[in-house]
C-alpha cells in the first residue's frame, strides 16, 4: 500500500469534514498547522481517521488519532502503520 501524502490527506479531510471557502487547506504550507486552527475538531479527526483506515488498510486507535494534532504527525502515524503492517 502506498503512503498517505498531504494531497490525499487534504482530499480526505475535505470529503469527511467539509471545508470553508477561506480554509488554509487551499494552498499554503499546512504540514505543521494544528488541525484545530484548520477548523477540524476531534470528531472531524475521528471521521477522517476512519476513512484513512478503510482506504489504507491500517488500524489506528482513537486515542492515538486525536493525539496527532498536525497533518505531519497524522501522516507519520499512518505511514508508520503502513510500513509495520497490521
Amino acid at each position: 500500500m502506498s503512503e498517505l501524502t498531504l494531497t490525499e490527506l487534504t482530499t480526505i479531510l475535505q470529503e469527511c469534514a467539509g471545508e470553508d471557502e477561506t480554509s488554509a487547506l487551499r494552498g499554503g504550507d499546512v504540514l505543521d498547522t494544528d488541525f484545530k486552527d484548520l477548523g477540524y475538531d476531534s470528531l472531524a479527526m475521528l471521521e477522517t481517521a476512519a476513512r484513512i483506515q478503510i482506504t489504507y488498510g491500517v488500524v489506528l486507535a482513537d486515542d492515538v488519532v486525536v493525539e496527532a494534532s498536525t497533518p505531519r504527525q497524522l501522516m507519520r502515524l499512518v505511514n508508520q502503520s503502513i510500513v509495520e503492517g497490521p
Binding site: 469527511c16 470553508d20 477548523g39
Partner: peptide, 8 residues
C-alpha cells in the same frame, strides 16, 4: 450553509 456543516 457553510460546506463545513454539510457532512455532519
Amino acid at each position: 450553509l457553510p460546506a463545513r456543516l454539510l457532512p455532519q
